[in-house]
Amino acid sequence: MKAQTGSYGEFERLAMPLFDSLYNFARWLAQDATEAEDLVQETFKKALHGFSSFVPDTDFRAWMFRILRNTFLTSRTGLRAKLTVELDPADEETTPVTWETPESLALASATREALQAALDGLPVMYREAVLLCDVEEMKYQEIAQVLSVPVGTVMSRIARERKLLRQMLAGERSVRSGSARK
């Protein structure tokens, strides 16, 4: 193991507060308890191994989530998710963020179960930005580091994912796999 004895304490101090969030995010990505556990274990292993390369005073949370996401993307489920839903290049551009109030009310007033079902219904790659923004309360810059995309892309992804959620809750469409592509 690469980490030096002295760095264990520092790693524990930084990593353990993120444990619950990492597991929650891993479950949303993998959609399977066993796989999520493996993802978290692998993330901790990789992070500890590469801890000496982590630059102090930079964003450790983004670093950990990025390792987790990259680990997921190279897993069988992750590869399948990437193949199933190829992000639309048009969506990668910065698009104006609009917000339709009647639809948004459907989202705001949805029950927790309905929202969870709607999030479940989104393809993996279409739920990660909004989860990082709204659940993990990450800043756009931080999300950009996790997803390895520009900040403008983060903004348009969040807008798109919120829009899909609103539409699903408003019962306008069912978004699954390939049909998520507009």
């Binding site: 597991y23 929650n24 949303w28 999520a36 929202l115 969870q116 989860l131 659940v135 959620l165």
Partner: peptide
């Protein structure tokens, strides 16, 4: 609402 729903596992 998303925060409440997303903190699930």
């Amino acid at each position: 609402a998303v925060r409440r729903a997303g903190n699930r596992y």
